[in-house]
Computed example of a mutant assay.
Amino acid sequence: MAIQQGKTTWRKSSYSLAHGDCVEVASPVRHTIAVRDSKDPQRPSLAFTPENWSAFVAVVNDGSRAL
Results as ranks from 00 to 15, higher is better:
Arg65Leu: 09
Val25Trp: 02
Phe56Pro: 05
Lys39His: 03
Thr8Tyr: 08
Ser38Tyr: 12
Arg43His: 09
Asn52Lys: 04
Gln5Asn: 11
Arg11Ile: 12
Val59Arg: 14
Ala18Val: 12
Gly6Gln: 13
Val25Phe: 01
Ser27Gln: 11
Ser64Gly: 11
Ser16Ile: 03
His19Pro: 01
Val60Ala: 03
Leu46Asn: 01
Ser13Asn: 11
Asp37Glu: 07
Pro28Val: 02
Gln5Arg: 12
Val60Thr: 06
Phe48Pro: 04
His31Pro: 01
Pro44Trp: 09
Ser13Val: 11
Met1Lys: 11
Val23Ile: 14
Phe48Tyr: 15
Pro41Lys: 06
Val60Tyr: 00
Ser38Gln: 10
Trp10Pro: 06
Arg30Ala: 11
Pro44Leu: 01
Lys7Pro: 00
Ala26Val: 09
Gly63Trp: 03
Ala18Tyr: 08
Phe48Asn: 03
Val29Asn: 08
Val23Lys: 00
Arg30Asp: 13
Cys22Arg: 05
Ile3Ser: 07
Ser45Ala: 15
Leu67Glu: 00
Cys22His: 05
Leu67Val: 10
Ala55Arg: 15
Ala26Phe: 09
Arg43Lys: 12
Gln5Met: 06
Arg43Leu: 14
Ser54Asp: 12
Pro50Asp: 05
Ala58Lys: 12
Trp10Asn: 00
Thr32Gly: 06
Asp40Tyr: 10
His19Glu: 13
Pro28Ala: 01
Val60Gln: 07
Lys12Asp: 07
Asp62Ala: 15
Ser64Ile: 01
Val23Arg: 00
Val25Ala: 04
Asp21Arg: 14
Ser64Pro: 00
Ala66Leu: 08
Arg36Asn: 07
Tyr15Asn: 06
Asp40Phe: 10
Ile3Tyr: 08
Arg65Trp: 07
Asp40Thr: 15
Ile3Met: 09
Val35Ile: 14
Ala55Asp: 10
Ala26Glu: 07
Ala34Ile: 02
Ser16Glu: 02
Thr8Leu: 12
Ala47Asp: 07
Ala18Trp: 09
Phe56Asn: 02
Ile33Phe: 03
Ser13Tyr: 13
Cys22Phe: 02
Leu17Tyr: 04
Val25Ile: 15
Glu51Asn: 09
Ala34Glu: 01
Pro44Met: 10
Asp37Leu: 07
Asn52Thr: 04
Thr9Cys: 09
Ala58Tyr: 04
Ile33Tyr: 02
Leu67His: 08
Ser13Glu: 09
Pro44Arg: 03
Trp10His: 11
Val57Ile: 12
Arg36Thr: 06
Lys7Glu: 15
Arg65Val: 05
Lys7Asn: 15
Val57Phe: 00
